[in-house]
């Protein structure tokens, strides 16, 4: 039940955005609005994806894990839209300018790196990839989502002129989520002692 909801629900911000665009309701600078909105949604969705595992441990609701993939893929989908806005609206698809920008501007370099990470995670999101890579290697690769989150926050922080309230808040949330992950790593040996002790 929750999984189809996540699959469909991820489309909601995008559909609302397109609907507002078609009504010409995105203000004086719709290109900027589309770009900023899709970028923020990508980062927020990524953070939502990272709450799944801590939430699952807290509630012992194991099926929650099935939400991780669709939410993660939505984060990638919004990152794709964000990147497309940049390619079309900011750079008019001028490949030379785009490469120059990615190399020269740190906040673009960082954002592009985050995009590449999400791309590789999306490409290896199938069950087939897990068996092919092996669980350990796959988990190692997919731990890079935290790096993508950090790069995403840096990209946001670096791009704002002065008011960093939103990227600061997102960075804080990422920090807490990362902390939760390290704070209580399920240790198999420990769990077994606990079991035998009780």
């Amino acid at each position: 039940m929750a999984r189809p909801l996540a699959i469909v629900g991820g489309a909601v911000p995008g559909v609302l955005l397109v609907e507002r665009f078609l009504r010409d309701d995105l203000g004086a600078n719709p290109a900027e609005k589309l770009e900023h909105f899709t970028g923020t949604v990508a980062l927020v969705t990524l953070l939502v994806c990272l709450t799944i595992t801590p939430l699952r441990r807290l509630t012992h609701l194991n099926p929650l894990i099935r939400l991780r993939k669709p939410i993660g893929l939505w984060a990638f989908a919004y990152a794709c839209m964000h990147f497309s806005c940049y390619l079309v609206f900011d750079q008019s698809l001028d490949l030379h300018e785009i490469l120059h920008d990615i190399v020269k501007r740190p906040y673009i370099t960082v954002g592009f790196s985050a995009f590449l990470i999400l791309l590789s995670l999306a490409l290896t999101s199938s069950t087939w990839s897990i068996t092919k890579l092996g669980g350990r290697r796959w988990r190692g690769l997919h731990a890079l989502i935290y790096l993508a989150g950090g790069l995403g926050v840096a990209h946001y922080l670096w791009s704002v002129k002065r008011d960093a309230t939103v990227p600061d808040a997102l960075g804080m949330i990422l920090f807490v989520l990362l902390g939760l992950r390290f704070w209580r790593r399920p240790n198999v040996a420990q769990r077994q002692t606990n079991l035998s002790g009780s």
């Binding site: 750079q91 008019s92 501007r105 791009s159």
Partner: peptide, 16 residues
């Protein structure tokens, strides 16, 4: 220092 000043988006247009 952080972004280019070579181009601009005229309000009312999507491109620069």
């Amino acid at each position: 220092p952080r972004w280019s000043q070579a181009r601009e988006r005229r309000i009312g247009s999507l491109l620069k």
